[in-house]
Amino acid sequence: MQSRKRGRLQRLAGLLEIPQDIVMDLPRITMLGNKQLLIENHKGIIEYTPSMIRIKLNQGELVIGGTDLTLGNLQIEQILVEGTVGELKYDV
């Protein structure tokens, strides 16, 4: 049932030329080299240490591993992670 609704939303987004992340409530993840990571449309921070950050997403979570990780520009809709990113893992 859920996959049928998702398929309809994807087709609608294609017909109306609307980005799928907006229609389907998906996260948008933008990485600049291995020094900055911008996560938009998140649901909050689960865990934060200088070597690992876990961020809750609509479906699952994003695990960021690295060194000297810091959170900058915290907003309701986006988080900027700075430091040396060594690993990204999307857990569903």
Rank of each mutant, 00 (worst) to 15 (best):
M1T: 08
M1K: 03
M1H: 07
S3G: 11
R4H: 09
R4W: 06
K5P: 05
K5S: 08
K5E: 14
R6H: 05
G7N: 08
R8A: 06
L9K: 13
Q10S: 10
Q10F: 05
R11L: 10
L12H: 07
G14P: 01
L15H: 15
L16T: 07
L16H: 06
E17D: 12
E17G: 05
I18N: 01
P19N: 01
P19R: 12
P19Q: 11
Q20E: 12
Q20Y: 03
Q20C: 09
Q20G: 03
V23P: 13
V23R: 09
V23D: 13
M24K: 06
M24S: 11
D25R: 08
D25F: 07
P27M: 00
P27Y: 02
R28N: 02
R28P: 00
M31L: 10
M31A: 12
G33T: 05
N34K: 12
N34D: 15
K35Q: 15
Q36E: 04
Q36C: 06
I39V: 07
N41R: 05
H42Q: 05
K43G: 00
K43A: 14
K43V: 00
G44K: 03
G44T: 15
G44M: 15
G44R: 10
I46E: 09
E47A: 08
E47L: 11
E47R: 04
T49I: 13
P50E: 04
S51F: 02
S51K: 15
I53Q: 01
I53S: 13
R54T: 13
R54L: 06
R54H: 10
I55C: 13
K56M: 10
K56D: 05
Q59K: 08
G60A: 01
E61N: 14
E61R: 11
L62Y: 02
L62H: 00
V63Q: 13
I64T: 08
G65N: 13
G66F: 10
G66D: 11
D68I: 07
L69T: 12
T70L: 10
T70K: 13
T70D: 07
G72E: 13
G72S: 06
L74H: 04
I76P: 12
E77M: 04
E77L: 11
E77Y: 06
Q78N: 14
Q78F: 11
I79H: 01
L80A: 07
L80C: 14
V81H: 06
V81R: 02
V81P: 02
T84W: 15
T84Q: 03
T84D: 11
T84P: 09
V85R: 00
V85T: 00
G86R: 08
G86T: 12
E87Q: 14
K89D: 14
Y90E: 12
D91V: 08
D91G: 04
D91C: 03
D91R: 10
V92P: 14
V92A: 15
